[in-house]
Every structure is written in structure tokens, then in C-alpha cells.
């Protein structure tokens, strides 16, 4: 099953840091997300893009996780050579993870 089946996501950017929310459609799936989508899984998934560490924060009352990915935007939004300088599309890529 893809994460896309049970969760949604939005990307934010600050300088060279990208953050990805991961939000369960049904809060009952939060524990599954917490168990399967570890910072290590996310770091491995984005290994070609994210050069720094990945930190995870948990908001169980909202069924949400927040991943903060450091050194993740090709040097920063203003100077990145990426077509997607803000990394806005990374949220959809996160949802492609199989669990």
C-alpha cells in the first residue's frame, strides 16, 4: 500500500530546509504511520535530494507527523538549480512510499 492511500502531505521551505507534513485521513491510521514512516525511512527515500539529517515531530491529536529535512533544497530556495526550487513537489513524492 502506498502512503497516498491513507495520508496527505504538504511541503514547506525555509532557506535550505524542507519540511513535510504527513497527515492521516483517518486518525486511526496514525499509529501505523508512526511505526512505518520513521526518519530513517524518509532519509533513505530522499537520499539523492536531502544531504542533511531528517528529524520527526509527532502531533498525535491531529494524526500528523512533521518531517524536517536539513540541507535539502540544493543550497537554498534563492540559489538552487532545481526546477522545483522550493521543493514543493516533495510532498507528493513522500506519498509514493510503500508501507
Amino acid at each position: 500500500m502506498k502512503l497516498w492511500e491513507i495520508a496527505h502531505s504538504r511541503t514547506g521551505d525555509k532557506g535550505n530546509i524542507s519540511n513535510l507534513s504527513l497527515i492521516a485521513y483517518d486518525i486511526k491510521d496514525f499509529e501505523l504511520l508512526k511505526e512505518k514512516v520513521t526518519p530513517e525511512v524518509v532519509k533513505e527515500w530522499f537520499k539523492d535530494i536531502v544531504k542533511g539529517e531528517v528529524v520527526r515531530y509527532e502531533l498525535p491529536q491531529l494524526g500528523a507527523l512533521n518531517f524536517v529535512m536539513y540541507d535539502a533544497l540544493g543550497g537554498g530556495v534563492t540559489r538552487s538549480l532545481s526546477l522545483d526550487k522550493h521543493g514543493k513537489g516533495l510532498s507528493s513524492y513522500l506519498l509514493d512510499i510503500d508501507i
Partner: peptide
């Protein structure tokens, strides 16, 4: 919830 976590770290 999507907007709450937009551009938020900790």
C-alpha cells in the same frame, strides 16, 4: 492541519 504545519519545524 496542512496549513498548521506549513513551514514549521519544531
Amino acid at each position: 492541519t496542512e496549513q498548521l504545519l506549513y513551514e514549521i519545524h519544531d
